[in-house]
Protein backbone atom coordinates (compact mmCIF):
# COMPACT_ATOMS: atom_id res chain seq x y z
CA UNK A 1 0.00 0.00 0.00
CA UNK A 2 1.45 3.30 -0.98
CA UNK A 3 2.25 5.75 1.76
CA UNK A 4 1.04 9.05 0.41
CA UNK A 5 2.89 11.00 3.10
CA UNK A 6 6.27 10.19 1.64
CA UNK A 7 8.09 12.49 -0.84
CA UNK A 8 8.16 11.09 -4.24
CA UNK A 9 11.65 9.59 -4.81
CA UNK A 10 13.39 9.13 -8.08
CA UNK A 11 13.14 5.90 -9.81
CA UNK A 12 15.90 3.61 -8.64
CA UNK A 13 16.21 1.98 -12.05
CA UNK A 14 16.68 5.38 -13.61
CA UNK A 15 19.31 6.23 -11.03
CA UNK A 16 21.10 3.01 -11.70
CA UNK A 17 21.13 3.70 -15.38
CA UNK A 18 22.32 7.26 -14.96
CA UNK A 19 25.16 6.22 -12.72
CA UNK A 20 26.12 3.33 -14.94
CA UNK A 21 26.18 5.66 -17.92
CA UNK A 22 28.36 8.11 -16.04
CA UNK A 23 30.75 5.38 -14.93
CA UNK A 24 30.82 3.90 -18.40
CA UNK A 25 31.56 7.35 -19.79
CA UNK A 26 34.55 7.64 -17.47
CA UNK A 27 35.63 4.10 -18.25
CA UNK A 28 35.37 4.88 -21.94
CA UNK A 29 37.51 7.97 -21.42
CA UNK A 30 40.13 6.06 -19.52
CA UNK A 31 39.86 3.16 -21.95
CA UNK A 32 40.47 5.56 -24.83
CA UNK A 33 43.51 6.98 -23.02
CA UNK A 34 44.76 3.49 -22.29
CA UNK A 35 44.40 2.50 -25.95
CA UNK A 36 46.08 5.66 -27.13
CA UNK A 37 49.05 5.08 -24.85
CA UNK A 38 49.31 1.44 -25.85
CA UNK A 39 49.29 2.43 -29.50
CA UNK A 40 51.79 5.20 -28.72
CA UNK A 41 49.34 7.63 -30.29
CA UNK A 42 50.59 10.77 -28.58
CA UNK A 43 48.37 12.98 -30.71
CA UNK A 44 45.27 11.30 -29.30
CA UNK A 45 46.68 11.49 -25.79
CA UNK A 46 47.08 15.25 -26.19
CA UNK A 47 43.51 15.47 -27.49
CA UNK A 48 42.19 13.46 -24.54
CA UNK A 49 44.04 15.37 -21.82
CA UNK A 50 43.02 18.82 -23.07
CA UNK A 51 40.12 18.55 -25.51
CA UNK A 52 39.29 22.23 -25.41
CA UNK A 53 42.73 23.35 -26.46
CA UNK A 54 42.97 20.66 -29.09
CA UNK A 55 39.64 21.74 -30.60
CA UNK A 56 40.62 25.39 -30.49
CA UNK A 57 44.10 25.12 -31.92
CA UNK A 58 44.00 22.07 -34.13
CA UNK A 59 40.40 21.80 -35.30
CA UNK A 60 39.88 25.56 -35.14
CA UNK A 61 36.50 24.91 -33.56
CA UNK A 62 34.99 27.52 -31.27
CA UNK A 63 33.16 25.00 -29.17
CA UNK A 64 35.05 21.82 -29.02
CA UNK A 65 34.19 18.67 -27.18
CA UNK A 66 35.62 19.88 -23.93
CA UNK A 67 35.68 17.13 -21.37
CA UNK A 68 36.93 18.94 -18.32
CA UNK A 69 35.36 16.48 -15.84
CA UNK A 70 37.00 13.43 -17.32
CA UNK A 71 40.24 15.31 -17.70
CA UNK A 72 40.09 15.82 -13.94
CA UNK A 73 40.33 12.04 -13.56
CA UNK A 74 43.96 12.03 -14.55
CA UNK A 75 45.01 15.00 -12.49
CA UNK A 76 46.97 12.87 -10.07
CA UNK A 77 48.92 11.10 -12.81
CA UNK A 78 50.12 14.20 -14.63
CA UNK A 79 53.72 13.39 -13.71
CA UNK A 80 53.46 9.94 -15.30
CA UNK A 81 51.71 11.36 -18.36
CA UNK A 82 54.36 14.02 -18.72
CA UNK A 83 57.09 11.43 -18.36
CA UNK A 84 55.47 9.32 -21.08
CA UNK A 85 54.85 12.23 -23.47
CA UNK A 86 58.32 13.70 -22.98
CA UNK A 87 59.93 10.93 -25.02
CA UNK A 88 58.65 11.97 -28.41
CA UNK A 89 58.34 15.64 -27.56
CA UNK A 90 61.96 16.04 -26.50
CA UNK A 91 63.15 14.13 -29.55
CA UNK A 92 61.17 16.65 -31.63
CA UNK A 93 62.50 19.64 -29.70
CA UNK A 94 66.09 18.44 -30.00
CA UNK A 95 65.71 18.58 -33.74
CA UNK A 96 63.90 21.92 -33.88
CA UNK A 97 65.77 23.62 -31.03
CA UNK A 98 69.13 21.86 -31.04
CA UNK A 99 70.60 24.40 -28.63
CA UNK A 100 68.25 23.44 -25.78
CA UNK A 101 69.35 20.74 -23.37
CA UNK A 102 66.78 19.06 -21.15
CA UNK A 103 67.46 17.67 -17.73
CA UNK A 104 64.81 15.57 -15.95
CA UNK A 105 64.89 16.79 -12.37
CA UNK A 106 61.89 14.73 -11.18
CA UNK A 107 59.49 12.35 -12.91
CA UNK A 108 58.06 14.26 -15.87
CA UNK A 109 59.73 17.55 -14.85
CA UNK A 110 62.36 19.04 -17.10
CA UNK A 111 64.79 21.93 -16.83
CA UNK A 112 66.00 23.64 -19.96
CA UNK A 113 69.62 24.64 -20.41
CA UNK A 114 70.58 26.97 -23.20
CA UNK A 115 73.57 25.41 -24.93
CA UNK A 116 76.26 23.08 -23.71
CA UNK A 117 78.95 25.72 -23.41
CA UNK A 118 80.74 26.45 -20.18
CA UNK A 119 78.58 28.42 -17.73
CA UNK A 120 75.45 27.90 -19.86
CA UNK A 121 72.31 29.38 -18.39
CA UNK A 122 69.38 27.53 -16.87
CA UNK A 123 66.74 28.93 -19.11
CA UNK A 124 63.46 27.70 -17.62
CA UNK A 125 61.34 24.57 -17.60
CA UNK A 126 59.49 22.50 -20.16
CA UNK A 127 55.71 22.06 -19.77
CA UNK A 128 55.27 18.73 -21.52
CA UNK A 129 51.47 18.49 -21.11
CA UNK A 130 50.96 21.91 -22.63
CA UNK A 131 53.82 21.61 -25.11
CA UNK A 132 55.34 24.92 -24.11
CA UNK A 133 58.52 26.45 -22.77
CA UNK A 134 58.30 28.28 -19.48
CA UNK A 135 61.30 30.49 -19.94
CA UNK A 136 62.88 32.18 -16.98
CA UNK A 137 61.69 35.75 -17.36
CA UNK A 138 64.92 37.44 -16.35
CA UNK A 139 67.03 35.29 -18.63
CA UNK A 140 64.61 35.70 -21.51
CA UNK A 141 64.61 39.47 -21.03
CA UNK A 142 68.39 39.49 -21.25
CA UNK A 143 68.26 37.59 -24.50
CA UNK A 144 65.64 39.97 -25.92
CA UNK A 145 67.70 43.01 -24.94
CA UNK A 146 70.82 41.46 -26.26
CA UNK A 147 69.18 41.05 -29.67
CA UNK A 148 67.86 44.61 -29.52
CA UNK A 149 71.35 45.96 -28.76
CA UNK A 150 72.75 44.21 -31.76
CA UNK A 151 71.43 47.04 -33.95
CA UNK A 152 73.74 49.41 -32.04
CA UNK A 153 76.58 46.95 -32.45
CA UNK A 154 76.72 46.49 -28.70
CA UNK A 155 76.68 43.57 -26.40
CA UNK A 156 74.47 43.34 -23.35
CA UNK A 157 77.17 44.43 -20.95
CA UNK A 158 79.30 46.65 -23.19
CA UNK A 159 78.30 49.83 -21.39
CA UNK A 160 78.74 48.39 -17.92
CA UNK A 161 82.14 46.98 -18.77
CA UNK A 162 83.23 50.31 -20.21
CA UNK A 163 82.03 52.10 -17.10
CA UNK A 164 83.82 49.72 -14.74
CA UNK A 165 87.02 49.86 -16.77
CA UNK A 166 86.95 53.64 -16.60
CA UNK A 167 86.47 53.47 -12.86
CA UNK A 168 89.46 51.14 -12.59
CA UNK A 169 91.55 53.49 -14.71
CA UNK A 170 90.60 56.36 -12.43
CA UNK A 171 91.51 54.30 -9.34
CA UNK A 172 94.81 53.30 -10.86
CA UNK A 173 95.56 56.95 -11.57
CA UNK A 174 94.82 57.73 -7.92
CA UNK A 175 97.31 55.09 -6.82
CA UNK A 176 99.92 56.32 -9.28
CA UNK A 177 99.57 59.96 -8.19
CA UNK A 178 100.13 59.29 -4.49
CA UNK A 179 103.63 60.68 -4.53
CA UNK A 180 102.54 63.83 -6.29
CA UNK A 181 99.80 64.35 -3.71
CA UNK A 182 102.23 63.90 -0.84
CA UNK A 183 104.43 66.67 -2.25
CA UNK A 184 101.39 68.87 -2.79
CA UNK A 185 100.25 68.41 0.83
CA UNK A 186 103.72 69.24 2.08
CA UNK A 187 103.65 72.46 0.09
CA UNK A 188 100.18 73.46 1.32
CA UNK A 189 101.09 72.81 4.95
CA UNK A 190 104.10 75.02 4.49
CA UNK A 191 101.94 77.77 3.04
CA UNK A 192 99.43 77.53 5.87
CA UNK A 193 102.22 77.81 8.39
CA UNK A 194 103.62 80.85 6.62
CA UNK A 195 100.25 82.53 6.36
CA UNK A 196 99.56 82.15 10.10
CA UNK A 197 102.96 83.52 11.01
CA UNK A 198 102.68 86.61 8.85
CA UNK A 199 101.81 89.73 10.79
CA UNK A 200 99.20 91.66 8.97
CA UNK A 201 97.25 94.75 9.34
CA UNK A 202 93.54 95.06 9.93
CA UNK A 203 92.72 95.41 6.26
CA UNK A 204 94.57 92.29 5.31
CA UNK A 205 93.20 90.04 8.06
CA UNK A 206 90.05 89.00 6.22
CA UNK A 207 91.96 88.31 3.06
CA UNK A 208 94.41 86.17 5.01
CA UNK A 209 91.63 84.20 6.64
CA UNK A 210 90.16 83.42 3.23
CA UNK A 211 93.49 82.24 1.91
CA UNK A 212 93.97 79.95 4.88
CA UNK A 213 90.53 78.51 4.51
CA UNK A 214 91.15 77.82 0.85
CA UNK A 215 94.39 76.01 1.68
CA UNK A 216 92.74 73.89 4.38
CA UNK A 217 90.04 73.04 1.87
CA UNK A 218 92.62 71.84 -0.64
CA UNK A 219 94.31 69.78 2.02
CA UNK A 220 91.03 68.10 2.98
CA UNK A 221 90.38 67.34 -0.66
CA UNK A 222 93.79 65.70 -1.02
CA UNK A 223 93.22 63.66 2.14
CA UNK A 224 89.97 62.40 0.66
CA UNK A 225 91.79 61.31 -2.47
CA UNK A 226 94.36 59.53 -0.31
CA UNK A 227 91.61 57.62 1.38
CA UNK A 228 90.15 56.58 -1.96
CA UNK A 229 93.57 55.48 -3.12
CA UNK A 230 93.90 53.28 -0.04
CA UNK A 231 90.91 51.18 -0.98
CA UNK A 232 91.65 51.37 -4.69
CA UNK A 233 93.56 48.09 -4.92
CA UNK A 234 90.65 46.17 -3.45
CA UNK A 235 88.17 47.99 -5.67
CA UNK A 236 90.22 47.36 -8.79
CA UNK A 237 90.29 43.70 -7.90
CA UNK A 238 86.56 43.64 -7.36
CA UNK A 239 86.11 45.44 -10.65
CA UNK A 240 88.15 42.78 -12.40
CA UNK A 241 85.87 40.12 -11.02
CA UNK A 242 82.79 42.04 -12.11
CA UNK A 243 84.19 42.56 -15.60
CA UNK A 244 85.00 38.86 -15.78
CA UNK A 245 81.43 37.92 -14.87
CA UNK A 246 80.01 40.42 -17.37
CA UNK A 247 82.34 39.32 -20.18
CA UNK A 248 81.43 35.74 -19.48
CA UNK A 249 77.76 36.61 -19.76
CA UNK A 250 78.37 38.49 -23.00
CA UNK A 251 80.30 35.54 -24.37
CA UNK A 252 77.61 33.02 -23.64
CA UNK A 253 74.88 35.36 -24.86
CA UNK A 254 76.88 35.62 -28.06
CA UNK A 255 76.64 31.85 -28.39
CA UNK A 256 72.91 31.96 -27.64
CA UNK A 257 72.34 34.53 -30.36
CA UNK A 258 74.46 32.61 -32.85
CA UNK A 259 72.49 29.43 -32.13
CA UNK A 260 69.16 31.15 -32.70
CA UNK A 261 70.30 32.87 -35.89
CA UNK A 262 71.76 29.64 -37.24
CA UNK A 263 68.44 27.82 -36.80
CA UNK A 264 65.80 30.53 -37.20
CA UNK A 265 67.61 33.30 -39.10
CA UNK A 266 66.14 35.91 -36.74
CA UNK A 267 64.95 36.34 -33.19
CA UNK A 268 61.49 37.31 -34.48
CA UNK A 269 61.08 33.98 -36.25
CA UNK A 270 62.24 32.19 -33.12
CA UNK A 271 59.60 33.98 -31.06
CA UNK A 272 56.89 33.16 -33.60
CA UNK A 273 57.84 29.51 -33.52
CA UNK A 274 57.71 29.48 -29.73
CA UNK A 275 54.14 30.78 -29.98
CA UNK A 276 52.97 28.07 -32.36
CA UNK A 277 54.88 25.22 -30.74
CA UNK A 278 51.75 23.26 -29.72
CA UNK A 279 50.19 23.41 -33.17
CA UNK A 280 53.44 22.62 -34.92
CA UNK A 281 54.11 19.66 -32.68
CA UNK A 282 50.63 18.12 -33.03
CA UNK A 283 50.85 18.69 -36.79
CA UNK A 284 54.15 16.81 -36.84
CA UNK A 285 52.52 13.94 -34.91
CA UNK A 286 49.68 13.85 -37.42
CA UNK A 287 52.13 13.95 -40.30
CA UNK A 288 54.22 11.15 -38.77
CA UNK A 289 51.09 9.02 -38.32
CA UNK A 290 50.09 9.71 -41.90
CA UNK A 291 53.45 8.42 -43.02
CA UNK A 292 52.96 5.34 -40.84
CA UNK A 293 49.49 4.74 -42.31
CA UNK A 294 50.83 5.10 -45.82
CA UNK A 295 53.62 2.70 -45.16
Amino acid sequence: MANSNQFSLSDHNQATKTLTDAVVNKIKYLQALDDAVKKQDDRLVYQLIDGARYAREIMRARHGNADAENEMLIKDIHAELSDYLSGKLIAYLKEKYPFFYFEEIAIGQFQIYFGNWWGRRMFGTLDVLNVSFNFDEIEYQKLTRSFALEAQNKRLNSDKIKQISESSDRLQALIDSQEKRDLEKEKIRGEIKRTSQEKSGFWKAAEQKDAKQRLVGELTHLAELDEQANSAYREIRENEERVLALSKEDTLMGYEKQSIIAKFSSFAVFEEKIETLYRDYIASLIAAKGVDADA
Binding site: L244, T251, G254
Partner: peptide, 12 residues
Protein backbone atom coordinates in the same frame (compact mmCIF):
# COMPACT_ATOMS: atom_id res chain seq x y z
CA UNK B 1 85.96 28.68 -11.44
CA UNK B 2 87.57 32.02 -12.30
CA UNK B 3 90.25 30.45 -14.42
CA UNK B 4 87.72 28.35 -16.28
CA UNK B 5 85.55 31.40 -16.92
CA UNK B 6 88.60 33.19 -18.28
CA UNK B 7 89.40 30.22 -20.49
CA UNK B 8 85.81 30.27 -21.75
CA UNK B 9 86.15 33.93 -22.77
CA UNK B 10 89.66 33.62 -24.22
CA UNK B 11 88.75 30.48 -26.18
CA UNK B 12 85.67 32.17 -27.56
Amino acid sequence: QFSLDKLFIKAS
